[in-house]
Structure formats: C-alpha cells, structure tokens
Simulated assay, not measured.
Amino acid sequence: MTIRRATPDIRTDDMESSREFYKLLGFEEAMDLGWVVTMASPSNPTAQVLLVGPEAEQLQPDMSVEVDEVDAVHDDMVAAGADIVYALRDEPWGVRRFFVRDPSGTIVNVVNHR
C-alpha cells in the first residue's frame, strides 16, 4: 500500500474566514465543492488542509488518508475487526472511500481518487 497524502479535516462554521486564514499561511484553493474546500501548498501539493463546512453530512472525519488501493485497505480493516462507520462507496465527485474509527475514537476518511 502507498500513502499519497494525509490531511487534517477541519470543521468550520465560517468557510470564507477559514479560507482567508489558510491563504495567509500560503495555501491556495485547490478544490471547492461548497461544503468542503481543499487548500493546498503551491510548492508541495500534498501539503493540504480540508475545510469542512456545516452543510456537510452529519458524520465527518477528523483526517483523510489517500491511498493507492482503497479496496485492499478496506479488506484489511474489515479482517482486523476495525469499526467501519461509513461504508466503502464511490462518491459522485470522483473518489472511492470509507470511514473507519481508530482506537482513540478519531474518524479517518480512507480515500482514493478515481
């Protein structure tokens, strides 16, 4: 398995203020789906912050990990008895993902871009 990136998923009630804050740190907007915005470093595109607005689904991850083989990671997690809290699926914006709860209660979005 290859990890392509790991990013914090930051919940915000004020998307515009959060976007402007991370721009001050040098991030640029890489994707905007309305309810989620990806801010990425222009010099290191895998250095990212995901901003998650209040319009998002009720269950939201605390971090995202992009992998090369999401189905294989899912199979390994299921075999290990991990707590899958959002079933493996293809999303309309072009990713395949699932959410798993780690032993400390952190929800991790395991994702692959299609």
Results as ranks from 00 to 15, higher is better:
T2C: 02
I3G: 04
I3Y: 03
R4P: 13
R4Q: 13
R5Y: 15
A6Y: 08
D9C: 14
R11S: 08
D14Q: 07
D14F: 07
M15V: 13
S17K: 15
S18V: 13
R19W: 05
R19L: 13
E20Y: 06
E20S: 09
F21Q: 06
Y22D: 02
Y22P: 03
K23T: 11
L24I: 11
E29Y: 01
G34E: 08
V36K: 07
V36W: 06
T38D: 08
T38N: 08
M39S: 02
M39W: 00
M39H: 04
A40W: 01
S41C: 10
S41K: 04
N44W: 02
P45A: 05
T46G: 06
L50H: 08
L50M: 14
V52T: 13
V52W: 05
P54E: 15
E55P: 04
E55R: 13
E57V: 10
Q58N: 09
Q60N: 09
P61L: 01
P61G: 09
M63Y: 03
S64F: 04
V65S: 03
V65P: 06
D68W: 01
D71R: 12
D71N: 10
A80L: 12
D83F: 01
I84L: 05
I84F: 01
A87K: 09
A87Q: 12
D90L: 09
G94Q: 11
V95A: 11
V95R: 04
R96G: 12
R97A: 11
R97P: 05
R97E: 10
F98V: 13
V100T: 03
R101H: 00
D102W: 02
G105S: 02
T106C: 06
T106K: 00
I107E: 00
V108Q: 00
V110E: 01
V110Q: 01
N112A: 13
R114A: 14
R114M: 12
